[in-house]
Measured scan of single mutants.
Amino acid sequence: ELSWTAEAEKMLGKVPFFVRKKVRKNTDNYAREIGEPVVTADVFRKAKEHLG
C-alpha cells in the first residue's frame, strides 16, 4: 500500500464505507501504473476518472 496525503485520505473518507477498501486498492494500483510514489488528491481524481 502506498502513502496517501491527508487531502487524498479526506477524499477517500467521502467514499461509501462498503467500497472504500476496493477504491483504496484500485487507486494504489493506478498510482503505481502511472509511476506515482504517493497518492495525492490529484492522483485520486485521475484514478476516479480513469477507473470510472
Score class of each variant (00 low, 15 high):
residue 24 R to F: 03
residue 13 G to L: 15
residue 14 K to H: 08
residue 35 G to L: 05
residue 21 K to N: 14
residue 12 L to Q: 01
residue 32 R to Y: 06
residue 46 K to L: 07
residue 46 K to F: 05
residue 49 E to A: 13
residue 35 G to D: 06
residue 26 N to R: 13
residue 44 F to V: 05
residue 44 F to R: 02
residue 39 V to K: 00
residue 28 D to S: 07
residue 17 F to E: 13
residue 17 F to H: 13
residue 15 V to C: 09
residue 2 L to A: 05
residue 28 D to K: 02
residue 27 T to F: 09
residue 7 E to Y: 04
residue 52 G to Q: 14
residue 52 G to K: 14
residue 20 R to A: 04
residue 51 L to I: 12
residue 42 D to S: 07
residue 43 V to K: 01
residue 17 F to L: 14
residue 8 A to Q: 00
residue 2 L to W: 04
residue 2 L to T: 07
residue 45 R to H: 08
residue 47 A to D: 01
residue 15 V to M: 11
residue 7 E to Q: 07
residue 17 F to S: 12
residue 9 E to L: 15
residue 11 M to W: 05
residue 24 R to E: 03
residue 36 E to R: 05
residue 17 F to P: 11
residue 40 T to F: 01
residue 43 V to E: 02
residue 44 F to Q: 01
residue 27 T to A: 08
residue 5 T to F: 01
residue 35 G to F: 05
residue 40 T to V: 01
residue 2 L to E: 03
residue 23 V to W: 10
residue 52 G to V: 12
residue 41 A to S: 07
residue 46 K to R: 11
residue 2 L to C: 05
residue 40 T to Q: 01
residue 42 D to Q: 07
residue 27 T to C: 09
residue 16 P to F: 05
residue 21 K to H: 14
residue 14 K to A: 08
residue 18 F to R: 12
residue 6 A to P: 13
residue 49 E to Y: 12
residue 34 I to M: 13
residue 3 S to Y: 13
residue 35 G to I: 02
residue 1 E to P: 15
residue 9 E to W: 12
residue 5 T to S: 08
residue 5 T to K: 02
residue 26 N to Q: 15
residue 47 A to Y: 14
residue 18 F to C: 15
residue 1 E to M: 09
residue 16 P to K: 05
residue 46 K to N: 07
residue 7 E to P: 04
residue 45 R to G: 05
residue 2 L to V: 10
residue 11 M to T: 03
residue 36 E to W: 07
residue 6 A to L: 11
residue 9 E to T: 09
residue 21 K to R: 12
residue 49 E to D: 10
residue 45 R to D: 06
residue 47 A to T: 04
residue 12 L to W: 03
residue 33 E to Y: 11
residue 29 N to V: 08
residue 4 W to C: 00
residue 16 P to L: 05
residue 18 F to V: 10
residue 3 S to V: 15
residue 1 E to W: 12
residue 41 A to D: 06
residue 12 L to M: 03
residue 51 L to H: 12
residue 31 A to M: 02
residue 29 N to L: 12
residue 44 F to Y: 09
residue 52 G to Y: 09
residue 19 V to L: 15
residue 33 E to C: 15
residue 28 D to T: 07
residue 4 W to D: 00
residue 42 D to P: 05
residue 4 W to V: 01
residue 9 E to Q: 09
residue 11 M to G: 03
residue 36 E to S: 11
residue 14 K to R: 08
residue 14 K to T: 08
residue 5 T to H: 04
residue 27 T to W: 04
residue 50 H to N: 09
residue 40 T to P: 01
residue 14 K to Q: 11
residue 26 N to D: 14
residue 50 H to D: 06
